[in-house]
Design a protein around this nucleic acid. Structure first.
Lengths: 257, 257
DNA sequence: CGGTACTTTGAGAATCGTCAAAGATAGTGG
DNA sequence: CCACTATCTTTGACGATTCTCAAAGTACCG
């Protein structure tokens, strides 16, 4: 019985916890995540097969080859999706923020890795049971469809960046994107913040994997942006956007006037 | 009445045709496309709001800024999705083959261009009416969800290519991908073909937009592959794969032994 | 305080882009 | 049938951007 439910791959930290009903009501991502379309009864049913689980920064959540045993929804923290070429070259495909859903529905494998960038808490759902819910609950499938469409939009935006932008444009684009995303995410959770200051949750190495560059090139672009007075950097991770318009111009999404 | 149905943007070739019921039965993409999950009654309903439409090679099908008036399903031919930076740099996001669906559901705009690579025939559906069908028909939404997941998988494969592959690897990957896709597509339609000979439907310029390279670099990689004896080229467009394993090795997806 | 991991900076090399020109192909009209 | 043109492709020379390799600097943690 317990086996059936706790079917997360046990090679990685095996700790999972049951979810009680008050937790769902209090869940920060209840309103906008995959659960947002579910009525209380359905949510309660789903809750019974759901386990909460924590991952430390850097831990692997799903591998790209092991059969997918469960799906997950991010409650807090940031994850990255990535692919690796046989010779070790790595490309990050996108980031997952709360309340993103992770796992490839309708296939028994992910074709990419999912790993924790920061400490992460997720709700996990055993694959087989969740699939049955999905089949029986069109509103849930509808919500997942919408989330998937958003992911596809994001993937295509990054394709333009990867294929056609210079190193400096890529870095400027990433910074603007983070400023926006973190601001919205923090505001939503009631955390005081402003649009121009934020902490980059990624190392230079993670950034380079995301932008299709090397660490050194990324570092050079940061130095360049600082020298141009467009951004300020403190402690390597804390970014201040000093000239948002200038940065947007560099990012190449605005037409020069 | 006619306005309501023929709401395709009229700036582009305005010719549309009604679909009669026998046409749906004979449709080449009936079995695997978005219609595959629909029963006869639903299909007949949908058919009433559907119009067939032809586009010549090169024609624009959907723009990236005009409000989306209709969706479409590809019956024959190949389309490309692309984005353009304000300064004119272009990136192709993917190709659409029969029976792909085109158009962003649940948003009133595409964020990319869709244009015909070859001559193309599509079924078009007025947006408002189709949305109502979609809401009322979970099986249709399920099918579109599956197609979208496949698109997302494809987009992520190309992200790895765009971000981390060298020019020669990109070209090798593209050729292998086309050999496979065209072989499957032709086989499905009963067209005699083999896996090693095919006609590239893209110009060098379209290839370069797809791979995130320049025309010249693409051309040089073709010459290189020819010189290495991995491929043969006749009339610039007809490709013969002479050494599939060697090409796969170059594409970087196989581990060197 | 020392060790580890991350970041920055520099020098030189490789890859890819730019500019230019010549070669090939397809379509047009005489 | 053959020039003629427009478009696409190939090739070359050169330059710019990015990568590689190496070393020094900085932050973090016990």
């Amino acid at each position: 019985m317990h086996n059936k439910i706790d079917c997360q791959d046990e090679r990685f930290s095996p700790k999972t916890n049951h979810i009680d009903s008050s937790e769902c009501q209090l869940c920060e991502v209840r309103a906008c995540g995959m659960c947002s379309e579910l009525d209380t009864a359905t949510l309660n049913d789903l809750r019974k097969i759901t386990r909460s689980r924590d991952y430390k920064a850097g831990e692997l959540i799903f591998s790209d080859d092991a059969p997918l045993q469960s799906y997950a929804a991010i409650k807090s923290g940031i994850v990255k999706l990535s692919k690796i070429l046989p010779d070790g070259r790595q490309q990050t495909l996108g980031l997952g923020f709360p309340p993103d859903f992770i796992g490839r529905t309708y296939k028994d494998k992910n074709t990419y890795f999912v790993s924790a960038i920061t400490n992460v808490t997720v709700c996990t759902f055993p694959r087989d049971l969740f699939n049955e819910y999905l089949k029986a609950t069109p509103s849930l499938e509808h919500r997942l469809f919408e989330l998937t469409l958003n992911e596809l939009d994001a993937a295509r935006d990054w394709m333009l960046m990867l294929g056609r932008m210079s190193a400096i444009e890529k870095v400027a684009t990433l910074l603007l994107s983070f400023a926006d995303r973190l601001y919205k995410s923090n505001s939503l959770q009631g955390i005081p913040c402003d649009e121009t200051h934020f902490e980059l949750p990624l190392t230079r190495s993670e950034i380079s994997d995301f932008l299709g560059l090397t660490i050194e090139t990324v570092s050079r672009q940061f130095s360049l942006l600082k020298k141009k007075g467009l951004i300020g950097i403190t402690q390597q991770r804390f970014i201040e956007i000093l000239d948002k318009e200038g940065l947007s111009l560099l990012a190449g999404q605005l037409k020069e006037t």
